[in-house]
Amino acid sequence: MEPILQVEHLSISFSQYHRGTRKRTLPVIHDLSFSICPGQVTAVVGSSGSGKSLLAHGILGILPYNSALEGTILYQGTPLTQRRAEQLRGREIVLVPQGVTYLDPLMEVGPQIRKGRRDPRSKARSRAVLERYGLGPEVEKRYPFELSGGMARRVLIASAVVEQPKLILADEPTPGLDARAASRILGHFRELAEDGAGVLLITHDLELALTIAHRVLVLYAGETIEEASAADFSAGRLRHPYTRALWAALPQNGFTPIPGTQPYPGEISDGCQFAPRCPRCRPECRGPGPVPYVPRAGGWVRCRFPEGGEAL
């Protein structure tokens, strides 16, 4: 199937002032490649600080002014330029943000969903999407501070899908919700994918992501280190030691933590970024030169000595 979104060698960096006057560039996302097909949920999993939200902002063309984006983003096979992104965002490509702070605190929910349009068709449409997510027409008259956490998430989804999008970027849509509410919210995304949209689910919660995702992309220190199908996790076919560690850290899989922390942007070293924490690290892993991202057994991996295989 023709992918709806292809991201190739995407890098996002910030320029900032370091020690007062010296300007430096801070790479946050580095050499990121993946694609999303219609009808599929692709999860991007990574711990906080790995640049996940910036990925969505980069696709939408709403990065902050002091950032730079390199690489190619193709939408339906054509480059997604800043101008094209401006035309498509909010219509074909939509963002479902994290929480209630993304709603204007001084505006009622209804006008926000409709973006200020007052014609009967828009009104009927906003009613219909609210109803689809189990919210009555009285919610339109509420202000964001009068919504519960779960309602706010559903309002955010409603405001995104009111336009019948083809690509949905969901940025951490579940934190702060109990397990049942969270899986219900995720169910909505799965449903949207079944209706034919491509869904990019950005999350730090691997366990929840696996409940709905078809493909999982693991970010570490701003790099993609593995792309796997959801089935690879339970089948033990994981390729990268970090992904294995993530999997083993889940409560039902032993709750085993690994020592150390992810390097911050700007602390990027030569060679493999995971080398200092890797149980299988060898001298060659520490460089020189970056580790290539290569296809392997139906997925992708960025490791010189992947699990279950000889040296690459």
């Binding site: 902002h57 709403i62 498509l88 965002r89 909010g90 963002l95 702070t101 993304y102 973006k115 995104a160």
Partner: peptide, 17 residues
């Protein structure tokens, strides 16, 4: 710089709007 303006931009609202 607020979240809700970021979201408004993500939803295609123009600067004057």
């Amino acid at each position: 710089e607020s979240d809700y303006v970021l979201f408004a931009r993500a939803r295609g609202e123009s600067l004057p709007a």
